[in-house]
């Protein structure tokens, strides 16, 4: 009980953390029943021009230190993905059995794996695979999801029913199970993994886009666009999608992180990248037997996955805060 009491009403915590809280409180208008301060309303950014939206977004993102750090980290990962294979100290697919399962040392920073391959080089080289799969899978899910969601939301009627029922069915199966089933049908391989992971996350995007379209379809300016005689497709792409953009961007950023996790999971199960291509999940799956004998083989690839996923999650959270003023009050 006494622990709860510490937060009681007239207690005053340190000032540094206070200030932010205060601003939030005022934004919500709860602290002062008679509205002590003119509330600075974060008005709907709906009708603003995209230029402003980008600028606004960048400004709020810049204010979020965690998101900024993660953005830098993500950019660094992209650089590693691009130049990684050229800067690895060893050939990431060169085996040297005499040197297998060596712990980290000056020559091999992260040690060597069961085949004597340099783990550091493989972790660096694996960045490209994870990022590529993440980005491609999300692109597939995003484009398909946007198109399906837009059609469903815009057309309505039986088209909507059919599309959304199929989405419901896909959501009724855990995504990793669906992805594995897809992999079984498509066969092993990284390209198949991209497709499988992309397909299973279509419903999320379709739902978001459909929901957004339904909520703004009735808006006056859409009706106005109709009156002016713009084609439906043009209306969708010029007017409806930009409005759903912020939600989609946030979702897609978080989607990259789950795509990377799924890739690693498929790799771990031996379904993704085929050896000797370096991939983090696959490295973990193959080194599993050496868990007590050579823990370092399992440590670094896992850290790489976690750090990458964490960075995209942080970035996604930061973007959400930056793009959705209402989320900021949380």
């Amino acid at each position: 009980m006494s622990e709860w009491n510490q937060s009681s009403v007239n207690e005053v915590p340190s000032r540094g953390s206070e200030s932010q809280k205060a601003d939030e409180t005022f934004a919500m208008g709860i602290a002062l029943p008679d509205g002590q301060i003119p509330v600075y309303d974060h008005d709907e950014t709906f009708h603003e021009k995209p230029e402003n939206q980008w600028l606004e977004m960048w400004r709020s993102l810049r204010a979020n230190r965690a998101a900024l750090v993660s953005l830098v980290f993500v950019l660094a990962l992209v650089v590693i993905a691009v130049i990684g294979p050229y800067i690895t100290p060893y050939n990431p697919i060169e085996t040297e059995m005499s040197n297998a399962l060596k712990p980290p040392s000056a020559e091999h920073w992260f040690g060597t794996d069961q085949l004597g391959m340099d783990i550091f080089s493989r972790v660096i080289a694996g960045t490209r695979v994870s990022l590529t799969v993440g980005l491609l899978a999300v692109s597939i899910a995003l484009t398909t999801g946007i198109v399906l969601g837009a059609i469903a939301g815009y057309a309505g009627g039986w088209v909507d029913t059919v599309i959304m029922r199929v989405m419901d069915m896909m959501l009724a199966i855990p995504s990793i199970l669906l992805a594995i089933t897809l992999m079984a049908a498509l066969g092993k391989g990284i390209d198949k993994a991209v497709i499988a992971i992309g397909l299973v996350s279509i419903p999320e995007y379709a739902r978001i886009v459909r929901g957004n379209i339904l909520s703004i379809k009735e808006n006056d300016y859409i009706a106005a666009a109709h009156v002016v005689g713009l084609s439906d497709a043009r209306i969708i792409f010029r007017h409806v999608l930009p409005n759903a953009l912020s939600v989609i961007i946030v979702r897609a950023t978080l989607g990259i992180s789950s795509a990377i996790l799924d890739t690693a999971a498929l790799g771990f199960l031996g379904l993704g990248v085929q050896p000797p291509q370096p991939e983090w999940g696959d490295m973990l799956g193959r080194a599993r037997g050496f868990i007590f004998q050579a823990p370092h083989t399992l440590l670094y690839p896992g850290m790489a996955i976690t750090a990458t996923v964490l960075a995209f999650n942080l970035l996604g959270d930061g973007l959400r805060d930056a793009l959705d003023p209402r989320a900021r009050i949380k």
């Binding site: 009403v9 007239n10 207690e11 915590p13 206070e18 809280k21 205060a22 409180t25 709860i30 602290a31």
Partner: peptide, 10 residues
């Protein structure tokens, strides 16, 4: 009644 929420403070 000391029902103020932070940052309010007497």
């Amino acid at each position: 009644l000391q029902l103020l929420q932070p940052p309010g403070r007497v």
